[in-house]
Simulated assay, not measured.
Amino acid sequence: MDFRPVERASQAFQQSVTAEEVQAVCRRVFGSDARVVSAVELGSGMYNNTYRVAVAGQERPVILRIAPEPGRQFRSERELMRNEYASLPYLAVISPLLPRVIAADWSHEVIGRDWMVQSLLDGVPAPERLGDYPRTLWPAFFRQMGAIARQVHAVRGPRFGPVTGPGYGTWSEAVVASLEDIAADLDSAGLDAADVRKVAAVAGHHHAVLDEVTEPRMTLGDFWTLNAMLHGSTPEPVITGVFDTDRTCWADPASDWTIRMAKAKTDEREAFWDSYGPLDQSAAAVWRARIYEARHLGAIRLERHRLGKADAVHESYGAMAALLAELS
């Protein structure tokens, strides 16, 4: 087997499995005689370990995604791969863009981690392909992003919270629980979580504003340029795939990471709103957006800690302080 894992420090959050473990997974999926020709780890993801695997006798390579060991997962990121798998029936509206699940295994019988084998999407990762086009054509890409987000956000759910639960009857309960989980994770990482707890307290005190959102809608949680595929040869950008949908949640669509990123800059991404439509600009919606931004900042702080970016972790406290000043 041609096995090419990403080399990482022993203390890094992501840790590769062995060539033998990749072979064992493929034998479970494709049969006891299956032989892995190559397994190349893809380094673009920051949570799961992802491999492009070629198996003898299979027409196309497949994607093998392996979750972190259970003991390494934060409370706020618990069993994300299982959450993605459970969300697929609700994502039928974009099913032509999603990879097909070939096999998923939560038993830990082969390796001590959850794993999923998926079909290989056609196209080129958007960060690698978009720059090939002149910027005058980039609005077409963001317009498609807006259309995809609008389709997903139209899907109604049974209760608020992650698809696999826990579920909440009100949006404020879900938001406060999420903030409390992030604070607990920061505690476990040895980081100061006082500001996140202050945001949770503000959200709880003003729960009526959050609870103006009464209908749970599907949100992708992490959909932006990094999780899109583009056609390799079309004269303008054409999205051919969407992947890594493990942070799906029943929520207020305005709380989605996609909306945050679409609002982040005044540039070609403004075309996103052409297809998505305008956001609610009421005083209550603006206040809720600040709570959502605080929650994003808490999650970003955890990710920066996981990646060993101490300076970026420190910077998050100033940004959170500014938000708390606006919320008070």
Rank of each mutant, 00 (worst) to 15 (best):
Ala201Met: 06
Ser255Lys: 03
Ala203Thr: 09
Phe141Ser: 08
Pro237His: 00
Thr136Arg: 15
His205Tyr: 09
Ser172Asn: 08
Gly221Cys: 02
Arg217Tyr: 00
Pro134Trp: 06
Gln151Asp: 13
Glu180Tyr: 06
Pro125Asn: 06
Pro237Lys: 04
Trp257Phe: 15
Asp187Gly: 10
Arg159Asn: 07
Asp256Glu: 10
Leu130Pro: 06
Gly161Asp: 03
Gly167Met: 03
Arg156His: 08
Asp246Lys: 03
Ala140Phe: 11
Phe141Val: 03
Thr170Ala: 10
Leu137Arg: 14
Pro253Gly: 07
Tyr133Leu: 04
Ala194Ser: 15
Val209Leu: 00
Asp122Lys: 12
Ala140Arg: 15
Gly161Leu: 06
Ile239Trp: 02
Ala183Ile: 02
Phe142Met: 11
Asp211His: 07
Trp171Asn: 00
Pro162Trp: 00
Ala228Met: 10
Gln118Ala: 12
Ala228Pro: 00
Phe142Val: 13
His206Val: 09
Gly204Pro: 00
Asp211Val: 05
Asp256Ser: 12
Asp132Leu: 12
Asp122Ser: 14
Val117Gly: 11
Asn227Asp: 03
Thr248Ala: 13
Gln151Leu: 15
Asp211Tyr: 06
Leu130Tyr: 07
Leu120Trp: 08
Glu236Arg: 14
Val152Asp: 05
Asp185Val: 11
Ala201Leu: 08
Gly167Ala: 00
Val176Pro: 01
Gly167Val: 07
Asp192Gly: 06
Trp115Lys: 05
Ala203Phe: 09
Pro216Leu: 00
Gln151Asn: 13
Gly165Ala: 10
Gly167Asn: 04
Gly161Lys: 09
Glu128Cys: 08
Val238Ile: 12
Ala200Leu: 10
Thr234Asn: 01
Val117Asn: 10
Ala228Ile: 04
Ile148Ala: 05
Gly169Ile: 04
Gly241Arg: 00
Asp192Lys: 08
Val175Gln: 06
Phe141Glu: 07
Arg197Asn: 11
Pro166Phe: 00
Val199Asn: 05
Ile182Cys: 14
His206Phe: 11
Leu226Val: 07
Met145Phe: 12
Ala194Gly: 13
Trp115Gln: 05
Gly232Asn: 04
Val199Ala: 15
Asp195Tyr: 11
Leu137His: 13
Gly167Leu: 01
